[in-house]
Amino acid sequence: MLQLDDLRLRQGDFRLTANWTLAEGDRLALIGPSGAGKSTLLAAIAGFLRPDSGALRWNGADLTAEPPARRPVAMLFQDQNLFPHLSILRNVGLGIRPDLRLNAAQRAQALAALERVGLGGMAERLPGSLSGGQQSRAALARVLVQDRPLLLLDEPFSALGPALRAEMLDLVTALLDETGGTLIMVSHAPEDARRIGGLLSLVDEGHAAAPVPGGEAFANPSPGLRRYLG
């Protein structure tokens, strides 16, 4: 269970509060206008931003002071999710060992992950030689080997076309079905939120609302959500 315990974030003049919990296996979409603080909240959960006050817990353990790599979190950013100078295999391998000293089993694990996301046979390619969709798959393969219970997506697929984006989200949900992982993703597009078919949290006016089931929220939108959906 992820617990945002009266979390208060500040970045310059910007402020954001959140006070809710998320059960293991839940899938949450953070939606809201640009600049509302969706990415900021994600950054705080991932450990790139120290909260002003409040605490962040995972299954009761306080994460607030943990560095990013020590959190139960795998994250994909808007861009630069792969190191362009390293092969796909090495990029995935970094999720297993950051110093890339992989033994045979670990190497096989990385290759299997690539196979799983449909990139079998492309292990030695450099990211630059892959299409946008393939790059996203490679990044997801790394998420797989990282084997962290909490996945954070900061609009990593926003540069892809609608069909490809949908395909990626389907892949993500399929992977989560296999691992039972928890997902928090930032999105501009309500259809993305519908696609993962989980919870919804509106981030607006300095506050990240408590998650509510997506279907319900769309059927019966709050005033804030209505304003956002237009």
Partner: peptide, 25 residues
Amino acid sequence: RSYGRLADSLGMRGMARLRWLILPR
């Protein structure tokens, strides 16, 4: 700026960061 967060999230520190990120980039 470009890769710091990714490297942080993967726990690339010290020699690993130098060898696989800083030097090649």
